[in-house]
Deep mutational scan, measured.
Amino acid sequence: MAEQVALSRTQVCGILREELFQGDAFHQSDTHIFIIMGASGDLAKKKIYPTIWWLFRDGLLPENTFIVGYARSRLTVADIRKQSEPFFKATPEEKLKLEDFFARNSYVAGQYDDAASYQRLNSHMNALHLGSQANRLFYLALPPTVYEAVTKNIHESCMSQIGWNRIIVEKPFGRDLQSSDRLSNHISSLFREDQIYRIDHYLGKEMVQNLMVLRFANRIFGPIWNRDNIACVILTFKEPFGTEGRGGYFDEFGIIRDVMQNHLLQMLCLVAMEKPASTNSDDVRDEKVKVLKCISEVQANNVVLGQYVGNPDGEGEATKGYLDDPTVPRGSTTATFAAVVLYVENERWDGVPFILRCGKALNERKAEVRLQFHDVAGDIFHQQCKRNELVIRVQPNEAVYTKMMTKKPGMFFNPEESELDLTYGNRYKNVKLPDAYERLILDVFCGSQMHFVRSDELREAWRIFTPLLHQIELEKPKPIPYIYGSRGPTEADELMKRVGFQYEGTYKWVNP
């Protein structure tokens, strides 16, 4: 592979701008107003304001973009700056750019259920340069409990009458099928589907988006991507930290609602779906819905739930269990780990287990898709061969690698495990991989909904998990304890083995 010439960040961002501006969906010269509902909250200060700053800094926003914060707290732009700027990672050389960014910011205080507050917000936006005809993007960085009041008031008082209007809704989209349907029906009564952007930030990850290209742009994968060759698929999300004093919020939802029903299920769809007619948003989402419709409700015998306990040999936070978090209700049975087996009941995947695993306070930070292939028929190497695996590593250190057998150097035919490896950090030294939120917010500006969740996708996802969630809430089974920093409950490994996964433990990928 030829040595790549190092590029400056300015040059890299210039390439990104060229890609972005050559499309006809990006209205570079139009006025846009980006409204952050819930501007005083954690999500706004840690993710949304920093993301908008990065896009502005790199010249990736339309030229005439204004940012308006809205929340109940009586704040000023200076207050917003004070709480969000520490997350910007701005350099001293960017000081003038930073001043320009905050000059485009404003803030309006108001209630979430008060019509007069929204009329005041609308008047404020109209007073901005060309504000009355601007395109408006409303980001709901809010708890779902206020979605209905907020969307109703936005629709009645704050819509642009000339430009387009788009609304970005953060997960969780309800707690179960019934609450999700209620919320979807409410929002759909106010906005068209092409105006609604239900954001799952995992769909903005580079390697998640790469799944489609790997599958449908490489001839070698087509013939082997089926039940005849693939023994099982494992989708993993692991965090090495616990709730760390923020367990009160987590306890309301648990690990299945927080990660599995959305992030992991979306990745499953991209692995299992048929080739779409095109890369058009609805063509892709149509195929994802077909996959979900082929999955039956989760069966309790295919589920393992766990909850982390303190590690007596650990240090600091590792010595504390979930129930030691003062914000967690006493005696909570909320799971911090889950392993679930699903089956896609169609011709391509009949009988292939899709194993979804996620948890907190585990032994490493990792998100990946792992396809394990069947054993080689007619073994001539005296059971020395391990199964081939194709691994798409989402985070950290984005990579695609194939675990395969090669001859060990020497005189004899002794096979050993090795890999074919594409590590993004080595291959793409001159490429700026956008943060997931950067990519998705740019998608909203461009009107691309491919990486957002459609209402029928959402409904099918909740259909699969709601009976299990209701059973857990009714019966309150005690989750299996696992030690902070471990791989999780051993019962999860036993479940995976029972459905056909072979864990060798003899080879570990190392970032080159």
Rank of each mutant, 00 (worst) to 15 (best):
E19W: 07
K45A: 07
A78P: 12
P240N: 12
N126A: 12
A109F: 11
F253Y: 11
T31C: 12
L43W: 02
S84W: 07
P172N: 01
H186N: 10
L61K: 02
G242H: 02
Q178N: 13
N226S: 12
T10I: 15
Q28L: 09
L142Y: 03
I224L: 14
A6L: 15
Y118T: 08
Y112E: 00
G254M: 00
D79Y: 07
R227A: 09
A44V: 05
H186W: 08
I162H: 11
W164T: 10
E18P: 07
W53P: 02
V208W: 03
I52W: 01
E94Y: 07
G222T: 12
K171Q: 03
L43P: 02
I234E: 14
S180R: 04
R81F: 14
K82P: 06
H129L: 14
A141N: 04
T51Y: 06
I33V: 12
D24W: 07
G204I: 01
N165E: 10
K89M: 11
K171L: 03
I167F: 13
H186E: 12
Q133L: 11
F250T: 02
N165I: 10
I224C: 11
R104A: 07
D24H: 10
V213D: 02
I199W: 03
L20G: 00
S29L: 10
Q22V: 11
S179I: 03
L16R: 09
A39Y: 02
G23I: 15
S106Y: 14
Y49I: 08
K45H: 12
L43S: 04
L203S: 01
G247Q: 05
R72D: 03
F26D: 15
E193F: 03
D113F: 13
K46R: 13
Q195Y: 04
V12I: 15
G110H: 00
I234W: 04
I15C: 07
L128I: 15
A103S: 15
Y70V: 14
I80R: 01
V150C: 11
D42F: 01
R219F: 08
P223W: 06
E94A: 05
V169Q: 03
R227T: 09
K45I: 07
F221M: 14
R57T: 02
Q178M: 12
L98K: 05
Y107A: 07
D42W: 01
L98G: 00
F250W: 04
L130H: 12
W225M: 05
V208E: 04
F221R: 01
T243Q: 02
V169C: 06
T10H: 09
N218Q: 04
G204W: 02
W164P: 06
S179K: 02
E206P: 08
F253P: 02
E252C: 09
T236H: 06
G163I: 00
Y249V: 02
D181V: 06
P50R: 11
S189P: 09
S73N: 06
F237W: 10
A149H: 13
I35M: 08
S117R: 13
R74T: 15
N126W: 07
P240Y: 10
S184M: 10
M37G: 08
S132R: 15
V146T: 11
I224F: 06
A25C: 15
N153G: 12
Y147G: 01
F253R: 03
N122H: 15
L43N: 00
F221C: 09
I35K: 03
D113C: 12
P144W: 03
I168Q: 00
K97R: 14
Q22F: 13
H27R: 15
S117Q: 08
A149Q: 13
D30M: 08
Y107W: 08
I67C: 08
V169M: 05
G254P: 03
F216C: 00
E85S: 09
Y197T: 01
Q178F: 12
G174L: 03
N153F: 12
E18A: 08
E193K: 04
A6G: 14
E63K: 14
N218E: 07
V233Q: 03
W225C: 02
H32Q: 09
F216S: 04
V77I: 14
T151S: 13
L140Y: 09
R74W: 15
V233H: 01
A134N: 14
E239W: 04
E85M: 12
R81Y: 07
Y49H: 00
E85Y: 08
L121H: 03
Y147H: 01
N185R: 11
T91G: 11
A141T: 06
S184Q: 12
N210M: 03
I33R: 01
A6T: 15
Y112D: 00
Y49N: 02
K89R: 15
R192S: 10
G59D: 08
S189G: 14
D176Y: 01
P143E: 04
S123W: 14
D114H: 11
A25M: 15
E156M: 12
I154Y: 02
R175C: 11
G222K: 10
I15L: 09
G23L: 11
G174H: 04
L130T: 14
F250D: 03
N218C: 01
I220L: 14
G245A: 10
N210P: 01
Y118W: 13
A39N: 02
E85A: 13
N226M: 06
N135W: 04
L20Q: 09
R74H: 15
P92E: 10
Q22T: 14
E94V: 06
S184T: 15
H27C: 06
A109G: 13
H27N: 15
Q133E: 13
